[in-house]
Amino acid sequence: MPKITFIEDDGTEHAVEAGADASVMQAAMDNLVPGIVAECGGYANCATCHVYIDPAWADKLPAPEEAEEVMIEAAFDVRPTSRLSCQVQVTEDTDGLIVRLPASQTGA
C-alpha cells in the first residue's frame, strides 16, 4: 500500500499507509491525522482539507482541475504548492508522498 507522510505545522510527523483508490484527504481521515477538517466530505467545495505538497512531489501529481483551483484560492495561507487533499488521488506512483499541513483549516 502506498505510504504518505503528513507533517503537522508544529513538525509532528504521521507516516500512514493509504488504501487503494483513496484520496490523500481520506487517507488522513482514516488514520486520524489531525489538522484536516474536510467539512464537505471530498467534493472540493469547502477548502478545509488544504495541504502543501512537498516541492519534490508537486510536479509529479496531476494538475488540479478548475473547481479545485478556485477553491484553493479560498483557503487560508495559500502557497504555490497548495492543494485540496480530497482531489489528490493515492496511486502506486504516489508511494512516499510527503504532505505538510497548514496551521489551521478554519482560521480558528
Binding site: 467545495n45 477548502a47 478545509t48 473547481a67 478556485v70 477553491m71 479560498a74 483557503a75
Partner: peptide, 18 residues
C-alpha cells in the same frame, strides 16, 4: 452542477466567512 457550484463555494469558505 459543478460548473455553477464553483462560482458560489469560494464565497463561503471559512476564510471568506471570517
Amino acid at each position: 452542477h459543478g460548473s455553477y457550484r464553483m462560482l458560489v463555494s469560494p464565497t463561503f469558505s471559512p476564510k471568506a466567512v471570517a
